[in-house]
Computed example of a mutant assay.
Amino acid sequence: MYDEFLTFAVALAREAGQIQLAYFRGNDLAIRTKSNISDVVTRADRESEELIAGAIVERWPSHAILGEEGGSRGAAASDYRWVIDPLDGTTNYSQGLPVFAVSIALQYRGEPIVGVVYAPYLNELFTAARGGGAYLSTGGGTPQPIHVAGKQSLPTAVVATGFPYDKDRNPDNNAANVARILPHVRDLRRMGAAAYDLCAVAAGFLDGFWELGLHEWDVAAGSLILLEAGGVIRELRADRGVSLVAGNAAIVDEIGRYVE
């Protein structure tokens, strides 16, 4: 039912990934800051979003678009809205670290129907269409079904988190959550790209994930992929942007005992 949209999004994600690889670890990133010194954007972010948004406008001019760099554009009243993070993990990318991804989601009347997250350096492509399950293609190979891990308690779990950009001026910055949960988990990771975190949970590479102060473009595609992989997403709170906990049902409950 959603094959045309999914095929289109996959092709765009791969094309944007090639832009990112072309600049990666080079000297022509044109790094700028946005909201503060921790919030950066590169030439690859901007070029990737313009590629994706331009292709959507050309193919479906009646659709709406929300992008991290370009904001809202297109037909605002449309039932269809594309939500784009052209380069999730920009800090990693700007440092030469390989965990970064293109995230493209399509919503219909507010509900996600297609999600694509592509990590170009790792050559990992995560995909989902609503009701069709979640898949991972590695190295350009045939997509294989993925499912969340089955662990039921934190002492055997490896979980991930992140920190909001205003961590320097807002003491409500997730540090207390980390201190509370750290003694109770096998280990903790800070991957630096929420879209990839959600997909890693979907594939069972991580057992759980929580974060505060995210945006819709960070999670729109990854959330659908995780849900289609049998996972659970729970709102953590309503006063810090998009704040969520993800994993299987048991792990989400366990994380919820320590984070707020």
Rank of each mutant, 00 (worst) to 15 (best):
T90E: 08
P143H: 14
A22P: 05
L29I: 12
F209L: 04
A202I: 13
I146G: 14
L154A: 12
A193L: 01
E211A: 08
Y196G: 00
R257K: 11
I31G: 05
L227F: 09
A55H: 02
D45W: 00
G222V: 11
N36Y: 12
I225M: 12
G140Y: 14
R32I: 12
G110S: 14
Q152N: 09
A129V: 09
V10P: 08
D166E: 06
Y93M: 08
L224A: 06
T33K: 11
Y258M: 04
Y121R: 14
R190G: 06
V114G: 07
D45T: 01
A176M: 03
D88Y: 14
L236I: 07
P164C: 10
T127Q: 12
E216L: 01
E124V: 03
T42H: 07
Y165P: 01
I52A: 06
I233N: 09
N174W: 07
R81I: 09
V41W: 02
A157Y: 04
R190V: 14
T156H: 06
D88P: 06
R73S: 14
A134T: 12
Q152G: 15
A149F: 13
Y196I: 12
E68Q: 05
L125V: 08
D253W: 01
A246C: 14
V116S: 10
L97M: 07
P120C: 05
R180T: 03
V114F: 07
R240W: 04
P120T: 02
Q20I: 09
G132T: 14
F100C: 08
V259T: 02
Y118V: 12
A76D: 06
E69K: 00
A77C: 05
A16P: 09
G132D: 15
D3P: 05
R180C: 00
P145N: 13
